[in-house]
Simulated assay, not measured.
Amino acid sequence: MVRETLNELSQLKQSGFGQPWPRHGLNLLYWFAQDYIDFSNGNIVSYYRPENGDFGFHKYHNRIDEEDPIVPIQNLPYYEVGNLNYSGADKLPNYVRANYSRNIPDNNKDRVIVRLDANGRFNRVYVTEHSDPKRFDGSKTFRVSQGLLLIIKNKSRDQYLSELSNTPGEQARFTQQSDYNRQANNDSWCTIL
Protein backbone atom coordinates (compact mmCIF):
# COMPACT_ATOMS: atom_id res chain seq x y z
CA MET A 1 0.00 0.00 0.00
CA VAL A 2 1.08 3.57 -0.59
CA ARG A 3 3.67 4.62 1.98
CA GLU A 4 3.31 8.39 1.92
CA THR A 5 2.49 11.42 -0.16
CA LEU A 6 5.36 13.25 -1.81
CA ASN A 7 4.88 17.01 -1.54
CA GLU A 8 8.37 18.39 -2.24
CA LEU A 9 11.27 17.63 -4.57
CA SER A 10 13.38 16.69 -1.54
CA GLN A 11 10.83 13.98 -0.66
CA LEU A 12 10.87 12.69 -4.23
CA LYS A 13 14.66 12.53 -4.08
CA GLN A 14 14.60 10.66 -0.74
CA SER A 15 12.01 8.18 -2.09
CA GLY A 16 14.55 6.84 -4.58
CA PHE A 17 11.98 6.80 -7.38
CA GLY A 18 13.62 6.71 -10.80
CA GLN A 19 17.13 6.43 -9.37
CA PRO A 20 19.90 5.62 -10.01
CA TRP A 21 20.59 6.26 -13.68
CA PRO A 22 19.80 4.69 -16.20
CA ARG A 23 16.29 4.38 -14.81
CA HIS A 24 13.74 6.50 -16.64
CA GLY A 25 11.26 7.38 -13.87
CA LEU A 26 12.43 10.92 -13.15
CA ASN A 27 12.20 11.86 -16.82
CA LEU A 28 8.85 10.04 -17.11
CA LEU A 29 7.41 12.04 -14.20
CA TYR A 30 8.79 15.27 -15.68
CA TRP A 31 7.13 14.54 -19.04
CA PHE A 32 3.86 13.69 -17.28
CA ALA A 33 3.84 16.98 -15.32
CA GLN A 34 5.00 19.11 -18.26
CA ASP A 35 3.19 17.68 -21.25
CA TYR A 36 0.41 15.33 -20.19
CA ILE A 37 -1.46 17.28 -17.51
CA ASP A 38 -2.49 20.77 -16.52
CA PHE A 39 -4.33 22.30 -13.58
CA SER A 40 -7.77 23.87 -13.65
CA ASN A 41 -9.86 25.02 -10.66
CA GLY A 42 -7.86 22.86 -8.26
CA ASN A 43 -8.09 19.75 -10.43
CA ILE A 44 -5.54 17.79 -12.43
CA VAL A 45 -6.78 17.66 -16.00
CA SER A 46 -5.26 15.78 -18.87
CA TYR A 47 -4.58 16.94 -22.39
CA TYR A 48 -5.22 13.32 -23.47
CA ARG A 49 -7.38 10.39 -22.44
CA PRO A 50 -5.37 7.54 -20.92
CA GLU A 51 -8.05 5.05 -21.94
CA ASN A 52 -7.08 5.75 -25.59
CA GLY A 53 -3.64 4.23 -25.02
CA ASP A 54 -1.62 7.28 -26.07
CA PHE A 55 2.04 7.16 -24.97
CA GLY A 56 1.61 3.56 -23.80
CA PHE A 57 -1.05 4.27 -21.17
CA HIS A 58 -3.03 1.15 -20.34
CA LYS A 59 -5.41 -0.04 -17.66
CA TYR A 60 -3.80 -0.88 -14.36
CA HIS A 61 -5.45 -3.79 -12.58
CA ASN A 62 -4.86 -3.23 -8.89
CA ARG A 63 -4.51 -6.94 -8.30
CA ILE A 64 -6.90 -7.63 -5.47
CA ASP A 65 -5.71 -11.23 -5.24
CA GLU A 66 -2.55 -9.89 -3.62
CA GLU A 67 -2.68 -9.48 0.14
CA ASP A 68 -1.57 -5.86 -0.01
CA PRO A 69 -2.58 -3.96 -3.17
CA ILE A 70 -0.24 -1.04 -3.86
CA VAL A 71 -2.96 1.57 -4.36
CA PRO A 72 -6.32 1.87 -2.58
CA ILE A 73 -9.05 -0.40 -3.89
CA GLN A 74 -11.69 1.88 -5.40
CA ASN A 75 -14.50 1.49 -7.86
CA LEU A 76 -12.64 3.92 -10.15
CA PRO A 77 -10.33 3.06 -13.05
CA TYR A 78 -6.55 3.18 -12.73
CA TYR A 79 -4.14 3.58 -15.65
CA GLU A 80 -0.38 3.21 -15.82
CA VAL A 81 2.32 4.55 -18.12
CA GLY A 82 6.05 3.99 -18.37
CA ASN A 83 6.50 0.53 -19.85
CA LEU A 84 8.89 1.27 -22.69
CA ASN A 85 7.97 -2.02 -24.39
CA TYR A 86 4.25 -1.25 -24.48
CA SER A 87 2.41 -0.21 -27.63
CA GLY A 88 2.41 3.57 -27.94
CA ALA A 89 5.43 4.13 -25.68
CA ASP A 90 7.43 5.08 -28.76
CA LYS A 91 5.45 8.36 -28.67
CA LEU A 92 7.08 9.32 -25.36
CA PRO A 93 9.77 11.98 -25.81
CA ASN A 94 13.29 10.87 -26.60
CA TYR A 95 14.59 12.07 -23.22
CA VAL A 96 12.32 9.49 -21.52
CA ARG A 97 13.30 6.62 -23.84
CA ALA A 98 16.88 7.70 -24.58
CA ASN A 99 18.87 5.36 -22.34
CA TYR A 100 16.59 2.35 -22.65
CA SER A 101 18.19 -0.99 -23.35
CA ARG A 102 16.67 -4.43 -22.87
CA ASN A 103 20.11 -5.46 -21.62
CA ILE A 104 19.79 -3.34 -18.47
CA PRO A 105 17.00 -4.81 -16.33
CA ASP A 106 16.43 -1.80 -14.07
CA ASN A 107 15.88 0.86 -16.70
CA ASN A 108 12.28 -0.12 -17.47
CA LYS A 109 10.87 -0.62 -14.00
CA ASP A 110 9.40 2.82 -13.18
CA ARG A 111 5.73 3.68 -13.67
CA VAL A 112 3.25 6.48 -13.12
CA ILE A 113 -0.24 5.30 -12.10
CA VAL A 114 -3.28 7.57 -12.24
CA ARG A 115 -6.82 7.17 -10.93
CA LEU A 116 -9.67 8.78 -12.83
CA ASP A 117 -12.71 10.18 -11.07
CA ALA A 118 -16.25 10.00 -12.46
CA ASN A 119 -15.61 13.18 -14.48
CA GLY A 120 -12.48 11.81 -16.15
CA ARG A 121 -10.08 13.94 -14.06
CA PHE A 122 -7.06 12.53 -12.27
CA ASN A 123 -7.88 12.51 -8.59
CA ARG A 124 -4.77 10.54 -7.63
CA VAL A 125 -1.29 10.21 -9.12
CA TYR A 126 1.24 7.63 -7.92
CA VAL A 127 4.79 6.65 -8.76
CA THR A 128 6.03 3.10 -8.30
CA GLU A 129 8.53 0.55 -9.52
CA HIS A 130 8.50 -3.13 -10.34
CA SER A 131 9.96 -5.50 -7.76
CA ASP A 132 9.82 -8.40 -10.25
CA PRO A 133 8.28 -8.99 -13.69
CA LYS A 134 4.72 -9.22 -12.40
CA ARG A 135 4.49 -7.11 -9.24
CA PHE A 136 5.03 -3.56 -8.15
CA ASP A 137 6.84 -2.86 -4.91
CA GLY A 138 4.41 -1.52 -2.30
CA SER A 139 7.29 -0.13 -0.25
CA LYS A 140 8.37 1.92 -3.29
CA THR A 141 4.92 3.27 -4.15
CA PHE A 142 4.15 6.91 -3.36
CA ARG A 143 1.30 9.27 -3.98
CA VAL A 144 2.40 12.46 -5.74
CA SER A 145 0.60 15.60 -4.58
CA GLN A 146 -0.80 18.22 -6.93
CA GLY A 147 1.64 20.64 -5.31
CA LEU A 148 4.64 18.54 -6.28
CA LEU A 149 3.33 18.12 -9.83
CA LEU A 150 2.98 21.91 -10.04
CA ILE A 151 6.53 22.39 -8.71
CA ILE A 152 7.81 20.02 -11.42
CA LYS A 153 5.73 21.76 -14.10
CA ASN A 154 7.27 25.11 -13.21
CA LYS A 155 10.89 23.95 -13.60
CA SER A 156 13.09 23.39 -16.59
CA ARG A 157 14.19 19.78 -16.98
CA ASP A 158 17.78 20.72 -16.07
CA GLN A 159 16.63 22.49 -12.88
CA TYR A 160 14.41 19.57 -11.91
CA LEU A 161 17.09 16.94 -12.48
CA SER A 162 19.82 18.96 -10.78
CA GLU A 163 17.69 19.16 -7.62
CA LEU A 164 17.13 15.39 -7.67
CA SER A 165 20.63 14.21 -8.60
CA ASN A 166 23.11 13.21 -5.94
CA THR A 167 26.13 14.24 -8.01
CA PRO A 168 26.76 16.46 -11.06
CA GLY A 169 27.78 13.36 -13.02
CA GLU A 170 24.47 11.72 -12.28
CA GLN A 171 22.56 14.77 -13.48
CA ALA A 172 24.57 14.76 -16.70
CA ARG A 173 23.66 11.12 -17.32
CA PHE A 174 19.94 11.78 -16.67
CA THR A 175 19.93 14.69 -19.12
CA GLN A 176 21.87 12.96 -21.90
CA GLN A 177 20.18 12.84 -25.28
CA SER A 178 21.68 9.53 -26.34
CA ASP A 179 20.12 7.50 -29.11
CA TYR A 180 17.12 5.37 -28.27
CA ASN A 181 18.48 1.85 -28.13
CA ARG A 182 16.10 -1.01 -28.90
CA GLN A 183 18.37 -4.02 -28.56
CA ALA A 184 16.44 -7.25 -28.34
CA ASN A 185 17.30 -9.40 -25.36
CA ASN A 186 14.53 -11.72 -24.28
CA ASP A 187 16.63 -13.01 -21.39
CA SER A 188 16.07 -9.84 -19.38
CA TRP A 189 12.91 -9.53 -17.28
CA CYS A 190 12.51 -5.90 -18.29
CA THR A 191 11.29 -7.04 -21.71
CA ILE A 192 8.00 -8.26 -20.25
CA LEU A 193 7.18 -5.47 -17.82
Rank of each mutant, 00 (worst) to 15 (best):
D106H: 07
P50W: 06
A184C: 14
Y180F: 15
A118P: 09
V71Q: 02
S162M: 09
R173S: 13
I151F: 09
S145T: 01
G138V: 09
V45M: 02
S188D: 12
R173T: 07
L12G: 02
G82Q: 03
A118C: 09
R115P: 03
S178M: 06
P133E: 15
L92H: 05
E80K: 01
L149C: 00
L149I: 04
N185V: 03
K155V: 00
N43F: 14
W31C: 11
D106F: 13
L148F: 02
V71E: 00
S188R: 08
L148D: 02
F55T: 00
E163Q: 11
A98M: 15
F32A: 02
N123P: 07
P105C: 12
K59G: 14
V45N: 00
L150Y: 13
S40Q: 13
N107R: 02
T5S: 09
N7A: 08
G88I: 03
E8C: 10
I151C: 08
F57M: 04
F57W: 05
I44H: 01
W189C: 05
L92A: 06
V81D: 00
Y30I: 01
N52M: 15
F55W: 04
S46M: 13
Y78W: 02
F17K: 06
Y160H: 06
A89T: 03
S145L: 09
L193W: 13
K59H: 06
S178E: 15
W21G: 06
S40F: 11
F32Y: 04
N7R: 10
L76R: 07
F174S: 05
L29P: 01
I44Q: 01
G42I: 08
T128V: 04
N103K: 10
I192N: 13
N185W: 08
D187R: 14
D110A: 04
T191V: 15
A89C: 09
G18S: 04
Y30E: 02
N75Y: 15
R124N: 14
S15P: 05
L26R: 05
R182Y: 14
L29I: 06
T175K: 10
D90A: 02
L12H: 00
H130I: 00
K13P: 04
L76P: 07
E4Y: 12
S10L: 10
L28P: 00
K13N: 12
G138C: 08
S139N: 13
N41T: 11
D54R: 10
N27S: 05
R111K: 11
N103C: 13
P22H: 03
S188G: 11
N166K: 07
R157I: 10
T167C: 12
P133Q: 14
N108Y: 05
H58T: 04
K153Y: 09
W21R: 10
Q74C: 08
P72F: 06
I73C: 02
P20H: 08
P20K: 01
F32T: 01
R63K: 14
A184I: 15
I104P: 01
V112E: 05
G147K: 14
F32P: 01
V45Q: 09
K109Y: 12
L150V: 13
A184L: 15
E129V: 09
I37Y: 01
G120C: 03
P105Q: 10
C190W: 04
L76Q: 14
L149G: 06
